[in-house]
Each structure stands twice: as C-alpha cells, then as structure tokens.
Design a protein around this nucleic acid. Sequence first.
DNA 1: CTGGGGATGGGGCCC
DNA 2: TGGGCCCCATCCCCA
Length: 264
Amino acid sequence: MPRSFLVRKSAGSRRRPNYSELHDSSPELTFQQPYDQAHLLAAIPPPEVLNPTASLPTLIWDSLLAPQAQPIGWASLLPQEIPKAGELTSLSDEDSGKGSQPPSPPSPAPSSFSSTSASSLEAEGYAAFPGLGQLPKQLTGLSVAKDPQSRKAFNCKYCNKEYISLGALKMHIRSHTLPCVCSTCGKAFSRPWLLQGHVRTHTGEKPFSCPHCSRAFADRSNLRAHLQTHSDVKKYQCKTCSRTFSRMSLLHKHQDSGCSGGPR
DNA sequence: CTGGGGATGGGGCCC
DNA sequence: TGGGCCCCATCCCCA
C-alpha cells in the first residue's frame, strides 16, 4: 500500500508537501479565530524545553473536524479485514518492536479534548461553530441510516475517501488539516507522534540505538532498516537473482535497473 | 550506480 | 471511541 495514496504527487515535483497550500485548501481550518497561529504555537513549548517525552501540543483542531464528516448511505466498501502485510520482518532480538520504547517513557499528553471521548461529533461541531445553531443531523456526520441492514459510511470532504469508522475518518482528515505544528519551523503534521519524530530532527535526540554498532537513530523504522545492514541475508530478495537487499526501495531500484538474472 | 541514512506518512492494532 | 504506538512504505540525499 503506497503511503502516498492520499497525497497526490506530481511527477518531477518534490516530495515535500506544500503545507501552505494544504492550509489554503482548507480555509475553514486556517489559524483564524478562535485560534490564531500564535495561540496554536503557544501550545508547544520551545525546543529548548521541549522534552520529546513531554506533553505534546493539544490538537485544538480536532473539534473543527466534525462538520466535515459526510456520511453517506451504505457504499460498497472494500473489505477491511485484509491482514497486515506479510511478516517479512525478522528483526534481531534487540529490535523486536514491542517494548523498544525510547529510553524516556512518554508521559500521557494532557489533552484538552479528553472530553471528546464522551461527546458526540455533533456536539463537537456545535462547540466549534456555536453560531451554526441546530444543524440538521445530516450535516453533522451523524446521520444513521434508517435501514438497520445498511451500514453508514463517512467520506472525506477533501479526497472523498470513504471510511466506515468515524474515528478512522477523523484520523484521516488530520492528514489534510495537519493539526500538529512544529514550534521551531512551523511544519505541520497529522499526528502528534509524527511531530514528535520531527522535533527530534531539531533536538538531535536519537533514542534508538543499534546494539551492533555505535549508531543511534531518531526513528525506529530507520533503526530497523539499519539493522538489516548488519545481516548477511537481507529480508528483501530479488526473485530473479536471489540477491537480498536491506530495503524494499533498494530492491525496487535493483529491479528497475534491470536485474541481470544471475547471483552476484 | 549502489547502499545506506534521514525524514515522513498512512492504516492497523491495542489499550 | 480516541490516543498512542507499531509496522510498513517511500522518497530524498549523500557517500
């Protein structure tokens, strides 16, 4: 599954998204009142005091997502029970994934939106747009199909992608609204932990150390990829020449460049 | 050209 | 239901 299935990239263009464009594309979600950008950034401690384990900025945009939910009647949804991609990973025991948290345990982020767990999206919508008054339920994303046999679905107003789960939709919409903003450079991210990882690029923190060498990494995935370099047999193998690679991208490069067909 | 590091993003799973 | 975390994936850049 290409990670960019939601982010259309034009050929030849830089991968880096134009965040200003993203913001422009959602005018109703700009840093206008009641939250201007200064207010938003103020929620994030400056880098010198920003412990990666410290509380992350609250996602004050979440409450704005409500009116974007556009439920539709039952639509032919793709099955959601597709199992995860094959467990190619055969990580070394040092990197078994679970339990390899960064050394500093994350503290629970105080969320001013904890109340949202009990509040309905509709209520959120009204709270975010008090002037809207009593919107028809159909506009709030909470309409329930009268037919108990039918299943409601929610689609994203930005890309029309459909979700059967409201939570999934809200999380997806974050990829459009990018509510997590770096106080240092202003770059925006869809999720707190993405911002957290990004902040490490400013702080230089590298909590993931390679047990085989002195290298350390800010990102677990990069450590995992690095660990492959210590392995004689990489997990990505060319079916033509049996050559193995530490990364899928390297295998793709190898195949795209034309596999000679024989083992090297 | 190849290999590797850095950075980033999304869905899924678990609590 | 939501947040946090994990895994996978990809692209860019550089040696």
